[in-house]
Design a protein around this nucleic acid. Structure first.
Length: 500
RNA sequence: CGGGCCAUAGCGCAGUCUGGCUAGCGCGCCUGCCUUGGGAGCAGGAGGCCGCCGGUUCAAAUCCGGCUGGCCCGACCA
C-alpha cells in the first residue's frame, strides 16, 4: 500500500508510484506498457499543449505508415547502423489454424520483402517527400506526426524506456541549410519552453556530442533534465539532418535560379518518456505531484459530514463551489480551458483516506468542505506541492474561492519550477581533474568539465565512469582549459552525467 | 545472449526442505451495522485445475523429469 520512500530505493519508488497512482502497468507483451486512463489523460494534456505550439510555429499534422520496407532503412547508412539492433520485423502476412494445436505462422505466406515496424519515420517520410517536393515553392514542408514507434529494447522501464512508445515526430524539408538549421533551433526552443513552462521542468539546452547524436544527423540539439536522483534524462531532441535523407531518397527540387538541389531536413521528437521525467522531477513520497498546466484535474473537493442533514448541506455547497470554479473566466494561461473540478462523493471512503488518495494522484489543489466551514461560509484549501498542515489555508470564503484558486494555480506552477531549478542548480558541480571527476560522479548531479572534443575520450570516460556528455549548453561560459583526461585544449566545459 | 531467482485467490505472500487432515494469511472485493476534519471499527460472505505436461506413490502444492512464462543483475538505448 505505502509507496517505497525515495531515499530507500528511488527506482522502486518510481514504479510504486506509477502503479499506485494508476498511470500505467506492464502488459502481457514483454516491454510494452498499458497506459491507464489517468496516465493517458496526462499525455493528452501534453499533446494538446505541444500540438498547439507546433501549429503556432507553422506545422501541420499528417500520418505515415507503421511499416517500413526493410530496404528503406538501409538507404541511410548511419540510420541502418543505429537502429538495426532494435527493430521488430514482420516476415509473414498470415497465420494458419491447425486443429487441436492452435495457430502457426503460415510458411506459404512469407513476405517478399520484410517490413520493419518503424523505430522512427525519417525513411518512409522522405521516400514520400520525394513525390511532394519539386520546386522551391513546395518548401518549407513542415509536418508533424503523432504516432507510436517500436524499439526492441533489452531492458525496459515504464515510460522511460518501453519497447513501444507514443511520441510526436516532426519532419521538415527546407530549401537552404540555414533555414533548416533555424528550424532545428526553433523546435528545440519549443521543447525548452514546453518543458519549463508546462512541465515546470528546468532543462539545459544545446547540442549533443558527436557520440551522442542521432544516427543520420549532422548534429542533434537536446533538452536535458535532471531527475531527483541526480541522473540525466534526455527529454527532447531536434536534429539537423543536412541533406542526408534527401540524398538517400533522391529528394531534389528546382530552386529559383532553375538549378536542381537536394532538400535540407530536420526531425524532432518528444515521447511518453516525458511522463517519466515529470514524475521524477516533482513527485514525492506521498505520490504524484502534477504541475497545474498539465494536470488533467486541477481541484478536488472532499466533502466532510456526520449526519444526513449535514451531508445534504455539504454536498450542495460542494457542487455550488465546483460550479463557480468551473465557470470562472478562462485564462490564456490554461489555453482558455476551464479549471477542472471534481467532487469526491465516494461513500465507501472516509475523508482521511480521500486526502491520501488525491495526494497520491497528484491533484494540485484539494478543498476540504465540512459543517464547520459551512457555518462560516468558508472552506479549507490545501496545496499538493506543500504537503501537510503548512500547505493548508483555512477560512477561505466560498464567495472568493474560485478567484483564489485561479490565482493559486500559477503560483503552484511557479513554485514547482523554482524548486526543481534550485535542486538542479545545487547539483551542478565543476570538476577540474579526472580524479576529482571520478569522485564527484559517484554523487548525484551533473558535472561541468573540460573535454577535448574527441569521441574516443568520451567513450573512455563512459567506460570508466558510466557518465556521458549530456549536453553542450548554448549558454555555457566561454572558458579556455584543458581536457581533464588528455590535457588537450578545450574552449569550454560540457555537461557530464549518468543518464536514464 | 551470459549469471541468479520465481510461478499457490484480483494483488502481495506463507505452506514445499521432512508427501497425508476442509490449502492458509494480509490487502482488496460483496452485504449489513457503525463511522466520517489525515489512510476507522465490528459481523457475515464470495473468490483456488497450487503455471503446463508427464513420472514415482495407497496418497503430490510438496518428490523426480521435461516444458512454458515472468522477474532481477550485466553488454545496447528516446
Amino acid at each position: 500500500m505505502a509507496i517505497t520512500k525515495r531515499a530507500d530505493d528511488y527506482s522502486q519508488w518510481y514504479l510504486d508510484l506509477i502503479f499506485q497512482a494508476g498511470l500505467a502497468e506492464n502488459s502481457a507483451v514483454r516491454g510494452c506498457m498499458v497506459i491507464k486512463p489517468t496516465g493517458f489523460a496526462l499525455w493528452e494534456k501534453m499533446q494538446a499543449a505541444l500540438d498547439r505550439m507546433f501549429k503556432e510555429t507553422g506545422h501541420v499534422n499528417a500520418y505515415f505508415p507503421l511499416f517500413i520496407p526493410k530496404s528503406f532503412l538501409a538507404k541511410e547508412e548511419q540510420m541502418a547502423e543505429g537502429f538495426a539492433k532494435e527493430c521488430a520485423v514482420v516476415t509473414h502476412y498470415r497465420l494458419k489454424a491447425i486443429p487441436g494445436q492452435g495457430v502457426i505462422v503460415d510458411p506459404e505466406a512469407k513476405l517478399e520483402e520484410e517490413l520493419i515496424v518503424r523505430p522512427t519515420s525519417e525513411t518512409i517520410i522522405w521516400n514520400t517527400y520525394k513525390n511532394w517536393i519539386q520546386s522551391w515553392r513546395d518548401l518549407p514542408l513542415l509536418i508533424n506526426q503523432w504516432a507510436n514507434v517500436v524499439r526492441w529494447e533489452m531492458r525496459t522501464r515504464l515510460f522511460l524506456r518501453t519497447a513501444e512508445f507514443l511520441w510526436q515526430e516532426g519532419h521538415t524539408a527546407h530549401a537552404t541549410a540555414s533555414e533548416a538549421e533555424e528550424e532545428t533551433r526553433r523546435m528545440v526552443e519549443v521543447y525548452r519552453q514546453f518543458a519549463e513552462e508546462y512541465l515546470a521542468m528546468p532543462v539545459l539546452v544545446g547540442p549533443k556530442s558527436e557520440g551522442q547524436k542521432f544516427p543520420g544527423a549532422i548534429y542533434t540539439l537536446c533538452i536535458e533534465a535532471m531527475m531527483q536522483d541526480g541522473k540525466a534524462l534526455q527529454a527532447g531532441t531536434s536534429h539537423f539532418l543536412g541533406q542526408n535523407f534527401a540524398k538517400a531518397f533522391d529528394v531534389q527540387f528546382t530552386n529559383a535560379q532553375g538549378q536542381r538541389e537536394y532538400a535540407w531536413a530536420t526531425s524532432w521528437g518528444v515521447s511518453t518518456r516525458l511522463i517519466g521525467g515529470l514524475i521524477m522531477t516533482h513527485s514525492d513520497d506521498l505520490g504524484l505531484v502534477l504541475p497545474p498546466r498539465v494536470a488533467p484535474l486541477h481541484v478536488v473537493i472532499v466533502p466532510i459530514f456526520r449526519k444526513e442533514d449535514e451531508k445534504l448541506a455539504v454536498y450542495e455547497a460542494a457542487h455550488t463551489l465546483a460550479k463557480s470554479i468551473r465557470e470562472h473566466p478562462r485564462s490564456a494561461w490554461l489555453n482558455y480551458e476551464p479549471i477542472t473540478v471534481k467532487v469526491d462523493d465516494r461513500e465507501q471512503h472516509q475523508p482521511g483516506w480521500k486526502f491520501a488518495d488525491w495526494e497520491l494522484k497528484g491533484v494540485p489543489i484539494r478543498i476540504e468542505l465540512g459543517p464547520k466551514d459551512l457555518e462560516k461560509k468558508t472552506c479549507v484549501i490545501a496545496r499538493r506541492d506543500i504537503p501537510g498542515k503548512e500547505g493548508k489555508q483555512m477560512g477561505i470564503p466560498l464567495e472568493g474561492a474560485a478567484q483564489y484558486i485561479a490565482d493559486l494555480l500559477p503560483q503552484i506552477q511557479r513554485a514547482l519550477f523554482d524548486k526543481a531549478k534550485k535542486f538542479r542548480d545545487a547539483h551542478l558541480r565543476t570538476a577540474n581533474t579526472y580524479d576529482e571527476f571520478k569522485q564527484m560522479i559517484e554523487e548525484p548531479g551533473f558535472i561541468w568539465a573540460h573535454w577535448d572534443g574527441q569521441r574516443q575520450t568520451e567513450e573512455l570516460i563512459a567506460a570508466e565512469t558510466k557518465a556521458t556528455i549530456r549536453c553542450i549548453p548554448f549558454d555555457r561560459p566561454i572558458e579556455q582549459g584543458k581536457c581533464m583526461v588528455t590535457g588537450a585544449p578545450s574552449h569550454g566545459r560540457v555537461i557530464f552525467a549518468r543518464a536514464y
